[in-house]
Structures are given as C-alpha cells and as structure tokens.
Design a protein around this nucleic acid. Structure first.
Lengths: 199, 199
DNA sequence: CCGCTTTTAGTACCAAGTCTTAATATCTGT
DNA sequence: ACAGATATTAAGACTTGGTACTAAAAGCGG
C-alpha cells in the first residue's frame, strides 16, 4: 500500500487491535490471554505477540504490581502525619511545608481543591512547629482567599505568635505562586504527659 | 487429647509454627510456599498443610485479593466528596452525616484523631447543605472541644443560620455519644455560574 | 513397643504463562 | 499473477507455584 487511506493514519488491523487490547486491560486488568484472545477474536499467540510488542506483562505480573502499587499508595495516604513535605522547621518558632495539589484532591463538580486539604496542610504544620511531644488543636480560624486548582504548588509558612504555658497561637499562611490563598490561626494545646490512652 | 500440659496452653510445635506463618505472611504476603518452607525450616508440604488448616490461600490468590481490595479502597477514598455518610438532608436548611473514626485516622503518637478529619466531615456537610450547584468555603471558625479516639462514631449536624445573596453562614456541630466534641462556623459562597475551569 | 499425630516425599495434574521453531495467511509492489 | 515481506497461527518444550492424593517415615505419649 502506498498511500491508501487506512494506512496513512497508521490504523492497520494490528495497531487497532493493540489499542483495543490496552483499553480492554484498562477496563479489566485481570484478563488472561485466553479471554483476551476470545474477545478480540484472534489466537492466543497473537495476543502474546501484541503484549510483547506493547511491553504488557503477563496477568500475574500485572496483578502483583497492582497489589504493590495500591498498597503503597494506601500506606502513603495513611502515613501522612504531615500533609506536604516539611521544608524547614525551627521548633517553637516557624516552619515551612510544601504540598502539590493533585487531581484527586479536587471536587469533581468545580475542579476546586477541597478545603480540608489546605486545612490539613496548615494544621499539621502548625502542630509540627510546636515544641512539644504531643499537641492538640483547640481552635482554628480559617480563611480561604482564592480557590485552588489541580497542579498548584502550595507553600505553607507557620509562625508561633504567642505562647502561654501549654497554649500556643500559631499563624499559618499558604501561598501559591507567591500569592496568599489561605490563612489560618490555630490555638494549640500541648500535652506534656504521655497521653497514649486509647478510648 | 484430654488435657495434656502442652496442649492445654495450645503451644504445640505445630500451632506455634502456624502462628509464625501468619505473622510472616503479614509482614510479606508475597512469599511462596518454598520461601516460607525455608524460613520456617520445614518442608513445603508442611507449609501447605498449615495453609490449608488456617485457610490461607495460595500466593496468587492472595496477591489478587490484595490488588482488588486495595484498588477498591483507593477508589472509595478518591470518591469521597462527602466525608461520612449523609444521613439526612434538607437542602438550604440542615443536614446530618455520620462518620466512623478508624485506626488510620488517628495520630500514632497520641491515638487522637487528626483534626482535619472532623474538619472535612463538617466542611463537606456544610457544602452539601447549601442549595447551590457549587459552593466554596470562605471562612471557617473551628473549635475542638474533646479529643476523639479510634472507634468513635461522629454525628455531624449542620444548620444554615443565615443567607445573604450568595453568602451562607452554616453552623456544624459534631457529637460523639451525644456529647459535643467539635463545632464550626463556616462562611460559604455559592457559585451560580458554571465554574468548571481547571487551573 | 503400639498407636496416633505430624511431617516428608513423591506423583499426577493444572493454569497461565515463556521461548522457540515452523507453518500458514495475508498483503503489496511490480 | 507471483515473489517477498509481514502478520497470524500452531505446536512443543519448559517454568512457576501451586492443588490433590497417596504413602512412607518420624516423633511422642503412654
């Protein structure tokens, strides 16, 4: 074929099939070569060649990677005691953290980041700044100035404004591109005695 | 077996091994029977009998279930536009939601639930109550009255206190066992025009 | 030492592959 | 229409990580 319509746009039977294969596996990654061969109406061998060409691992490998990846993601979410990376910390004085806003932090409807992420970043930074083994938030006054969208790189700066005994007042300001988008004032109470109790 | 000393405390070699097996798999669920046989220093067959006795599926099944479970959990987390279940909703007036505090919501150090979970429950409920296609939080005043531990069943009740044009004042109180543990006042701005922009 | 449980061993078989070689189909240009 | 290239199918040997089953050997308790 020199320039037949079909070829020119690179849609040979093979390529279409391989694309379909990818989509099929995206819908359901737990398909065996045999099942794929049936739905795509080709032989198993063809499926295997296609997998090879596209670098798609076999069912078991796919399953294993899914298990590991998802597990790690869950762990990452669960272990986020501090939301965002701690960039700088002067215990008892100030601290800076950074958080990337990703697609899964925004509301479907509006594309705006859910407020509690900024709250979490600010609050956890405020708690980290306090020079105490453990601390609890008592009161928070929060102001959202600008809506945040996916892709924003939020930089939070916390400052301890006042301390009286076990009570701290901490201000946190979050900026995106050097523009203040959020600010919060926290009243935090430190817990000097080990309070490891559960329920 | 009547009541032999060893048996009574149920620490036969076999039982100890089976417990070890479980722990080993908890640490690393991707171990083959062969690897397990090596570390426990018994034959593969013994491992298989133990798995059978304890109802532990084979490596591939374990892997598959992990993949599926974790995937679903991630999906659940991602799709949680509202934190907690919405129990009752009178659009524009009030709403009630419930949220179970689980182990992974609490800080390791203190066992106390991280503040942003309550904030998220309250905030998302407040947003849900607003009778508008989309809304944003502007200001929040938050008070944590009692620390929450794992297992708590939090009931949030939101009430729209005042509305002026596109601005709403919503109060949210969270109770655990009928005891108020948290309260928040939100100033929320509704977005009448479709603001589906990104970035 | 007998009888019982426990542990090993060995065999056949399966699923879902890999890897290799070889035979067909199917195009495609001339 | 036919040679040559490309794509598809087929077939066989081998691999992993098992299940299922049978049988032998080891331990141990009284």
């Amino acid at each position: 074929m020199v320039l037949k319509a079909g070829e020119a746009v690179s849609t040979s039977k093979k390529q279409i099939r391989q694309e379909t294969l990818l989509k099929e596996l995206e819908k359901n990654p737990f398909l065996t070569d045999e099942q794929l061969a049936n739905t795509l109406e080709v032989s198993i061998q063809t499926i295997r060649l296609d997998r090879l060409a596209k670098g798609i691992p076999e069912l078991r490998e796919r399953t294993k990677h899914m298990a590991i990846d998802a597990q790690e993601k869950l762990k990452a979410i669960a272990s986020e005691d501090i939301f965002g990376q701690l960039i700088d910390l002067e215990l008892g004085h100030s601290g800076i953290s950074m958080m990337q806003v990703t697609q899964d932090m925004v509301l479907q409807k509006t594309g705006v980041a859910r407020g509690h992420y900024m709250f979490a970043q600010a609050n956890s930074l405020a708690l980290a700044v306090i020079d105490a083994p453990a601390a609890l938030t008592g009161v928070a006054n929060v102001k959202y100035k600008v809506p945040i969208y996916s892709g924003a790189n939020l930089v939070a700066r916390a400052e301890v404004i006042r301390q009286q005994n076990d009570k701290y007042i901490v201000w946190v300001k979050i900026r995106n591109n050097n523009k203040e988008v959020f600010r919060a004032k926290f009243l935090i109470v430190s817990l000097p005695e080990e309070r490891t109790g559960q329920k």
